Simulated assay, not measured.
Amino acid sequence: MKNLPPLKSLQVFLSAAQNNSFKAAAENLYVTQAAVSQQIRLLESHLGCKLFERNSKQTKLNEKGKLLMPYIEHAFEQINHGVNAVKFEPNANELRISALHSVTSILLIPKISEFQEKNSNLSVQFSPNNKLDTFEALDIDIAIRRGLGDYSGLKSRKLVEDSIILISSPLIIKENKNDIDIIFDLPLLEDTSSDIQEAINDCCKQFDIKRSRLKSRLKTTDALPIIQSALAGQGIAFVSKVLVDEHLRNGNLINVLNYYFDNPRSLYLVAPAHHFSWDKVKRFETWITKLLSI
């Protein structure tokens, strides 16, 4: 540790390297350009090598600087994570949830009033998003994602075991819900996500139906319009069972052919590990786990 250069010079190096500019680094750090140059000279003196190529038009990393850059970038990221891990819970009265569009619309928004009644001190905000690069950029507290639970640098907790089923409105199946010829001649409301496609191929194989026989009326990766169209009687669809459980219970949808496909992907709560120690996240986890276990 004694051989490390001053932390300030490393911070200045990182800003200058990321911006390819001493001037921009000075503006970002609220110091003068001369102060930036001084810190870079101090670092180069400590290391015994130059880190930047300088000319009248541009400042950029040389080979030594390029070699050092990812190490310093990673080190500051780790410092930031460590500081966040021991900080008090931020915005204790606000819960910001990032969830898939379908999960937000189908599972959360219709039921969130139940959570808020029990947690009246919390203001809940939704950020429908299918990506995970939102925790720092949007101050997200917790995310719900569908996958295998392997999210690099993040902790995940499985919410529910899931399967993919074949559904339709009882309006178009009626008494023919076991008639394979009638069912597979109906329009397919097709989710093009990889796990749904695996289920479609499995179902065709199980019932000895050629995949080319299925005619798609709608194609999308968003489960919401698929389910809405199925409810309107516009065709059959392969969907995540957890998204339609309530519609199955009240008879708005039926499980056609009693078909199930064991899906390796499921819904997970995902966040930086220290978020799970926050009281507001614990309360939401308890509520959403109970909701999905019904």
Rank of each mutant, 00 (worst) to 15 (best):
N3H: 10
L4T: 01
L4A: 09
L7E: 15
V12T: 14
L14A: 05
N19T: 15
N19G: 10
N20C: 07
N20P: 01
A24K: 14
Y30N: 13
Y30S: 14
Q33M: 10
Q33D: 08
A34S: 14
Q39W: 03
R41M: 08
G48N: 12
L51D: 09
R54G: 00
S56D: 14
K57A: 14
K57E: 12
L61Y: 04
K64D: 05
K64P: 01
G65N: 06
G65R: 00
L68Q: 07
P70M: 00
A75H: 09
Q78V: 08
H81R: 13
V83K: 13
N84I: 01
N84A: 12
A85T: 07
N91G: 12
A92W: 05
N93T: 10
L95V: 06
R96I: 01
I97S: 01
S98H: 02
S98W: 02
A99T: 00
L100G: 01
L108F: 10
P110W: 13
I112N: 04
S113G: 08
F115M: 06
F115P: 03
F115W: 08
E117P: 04
N121Y: 13
L122G: 00
F126P: 04
S127G: 02
K131W: 06
K131M: 00
T134D: 01
A137T: 07
A137L: 13
A137S: 11
D139P: 01
D141K: 02
L154M: 13
V160C: 11
V160Y: 08
E161Y: 11
D162F: 02
S168D: 08
L171H: 08
K177Y: 11
N178A: 04
D179Q: 14
D181L: 08
D185K: 12
L189V: 08
L189R: 00
L189E: 05
S194C: 06
D195N: 13
E198N: 11
I200M: 08
N201Y: 11
D202L: 03
Q206C: 01
D208F: 09
D208E: 14
K210M: 03
R211K: 14
R211H: 09
S216P: 09
K219R: 15
D222N: 15
A223G: 06
I226Y: 03
I227T: 05
L231P: 02
G233D: 05
Q234H: 15
Q234K: 15
Q234N: 14
G235R: 04
I236Y: 00
I236V: 13
F238S: 01
F238H: 06
V242I: 11
V244D: 00
V244E: 02
D245E: 15
H247S: 10
R249Y: 05
L253I: 10
I254F: 06
N255R: 12
V256S: 03
L257Q: 11
N258Q: 12
Y259T: 07
F261R: 04
D262K: 15
N263A: 15
H274T: 00
H274Y: 14
F276G: 04
S277I: 05
D279F: 02
K280Q: 09
V281R: 00
K282L: 12
F284S: 06
F284A: 10
E285D: 12
E285W: 03
I288C: 05
T289L: 11
L291H: 12
I294V: 14
